[in-house]
Simulated assay, not measured.
Amino acid sequence: MTNYTMVTEFLLETFGNEWELRLLNSVLFLLMYLITLLGNILIIAATTLDKKLHTPMYFFLRNLSMLDICYISVTVPNACVTSLTNNRAISVAGCATQIFLVIYFAIIEIMFLTIMAHDRYVAICQPLHYPVIMNHQFCVRMTLLSLFSGLVYSGVHTGNTFRLNFCQSNVVHQFFCDVPSLLLLSCSDTFSNEILILVSAIVVCGGCFIFIAISYSHIFSTVLKFSSKERGKAFSTCIPHILVVSVFLSSISYVYLKPSVTSEAIQDIIPSVLYTIVPPLLNPIIYSLRNKQVKDAVKKVLLRISYCFDYCF
């Protein structure tokens, strides 16, 4: 038998070798993180406090904002600390937890975006049936189904990854633990893992993409029959959703479906940023805060905060 040393911890990639570069990238990531937190917290507060926004569309927007806060918090704070302190080590248990949470929040994000596409389809193509189809019970059931499905999906992929033996390099060429990076470090046969990733991506991500594409094909065919003013209003709610979905699905597909070969760290990090950081950052900016009702509700929240601040101090 060949002698080898089992991996007991992994080393994450930092934002550069030089201290100045690591500091610059950490500040940039931290700034995006804080903007994401602020934007999503405002959306949650606005859609909760304003009774006019207690509708199915804003119910899922609120859920999406809460999800995005959790999603970006799994990777960015730890990456910033790792890069600033240059302490790259992460335990096997910590790595497994990070993989589980990243996959869990990512799959729920896909499902929420799919449900929101269905919401827009019903609102635009079947407006008279909207209150019946998109009732509160349906919204709650779909949310719970997404949360449960995410647990199963992430549990299967995390368990299937950590049944492997890791006895080669322990350097993860990524700023957080993810499945493709760990498969490159395994000394076990990873063929079944790659097949599972391919099949699950086709079924889940491919299925969601097809559903979204069909929904928007019906939406666009209906919108073209509207007047110019109504058409512009309908497109203003759909185009941001399409942008978020496109960035998210294309980047996550590239990371998980590309051939398992070692490449430059920067080539792996950029697509990962696009599916772990950019969607939570973009959602409150182009998907919610462009909406007049949400902007008015956010202004009311800010005025309340300003009044409370002045009253207390």
Rank of each mutant, 00 (worst) to 15 (best):
I305M: 07
S91K: 03
I202K: 07
G150F: 03
L21W: 08
Y130M: 09
D68F: 06
E109A: 14
V156L: 03
D50Q: 01
V171S: 15
K292S: 13
F15E: 00
D310Q: 14
L198W: 10
T237G: 10
S83N: 04
E18M: 09
G39N: 00
A123C: 15
C80L: 01
Y130K: 09
I212K: 07
L31H: 03
V172M: 06
S188L: 08
N283G: 12
S65W: 02
G232Q: 05
K51T: 09
K225T: 12
T8H: 12
V122T: 01
S26T: 02
V245G: 09
S263V: 08
Q137H: 08
I210R: 05
P271L: 00
E230K: 07
A46L: 00
Y287G: 07
K299E: 11
I133S: 11
V179C: 01
P77T: 00
N165V: 11
L24C: 07
V179W: 02
L224A: 11
S154P: 15
E230D: 11
I124R: 03
G232F: 13
F166W: 03
G94I: 03
K299P: 06
M57H: 10
I239W: 06
E13T: 01
T222R: 07
Y58S: 04
Q137S: 13
V156F: 05
I305E: 06
N291D: 14
F211C: 14
S188C: 14
A79Q: 03
N87Q: 12
M6R: 12
T14F: 04
A96G: 13
F191D: 08
V102R: 05
I277S: 04
L64A: 14
S253M: 01
Y58N: 14
C125G: 02
S149K: 10
V245Y: 15
V261R: 10
F166K: 01
T276A: 06
G39L: 00
Y104S: 01
V172W: 01
T36N: 00
C139Q: 15
W19F: 11
F175E: 08
L144P: 08
S181D: 06
I212T: 11
S250D: 04
P127R: 04
L196T: 02
Y216G: 02
V122D: 03
K233G: 10
C208R: 07
V298R: 01
T85F: 03
P131H: 02
I72P: 00
F162I: 05
V223S: 02
F60T: 09
T237M: 13
I202H: 12
N193K: 14
T161F: 05
I115F: 13
I35R: 02
I197D: 08
M142A: 10
Y275C: 04
C125T: 04
M142G: 12
H173S: 14
L42Y: 00
G232T: 12
F248T: 06
I103A: 11
L28R: 14
V261H: 14
L183Q: 07
R62I: 15
V204Q: 09
S26G: 03
G94M: 02
N135P: 00
I99K: 12
T14P: 02
Y4Q: 11
E18S: 07
Q126D: 07
E230Q: 09
G39Y: 00
G150T: 10
S181M: 05
M32C: 11
H136C: 10
L144K: 10
L24E: 08
R22L: 06
H241Y: 13
V172N: 05
Y275R: 01
V294N: 03
V255E: 05
L30R: 15
A123F: 07
I202W: 14
F235K: 14
A265Q: 13
S65V: 01
L274Y: 11
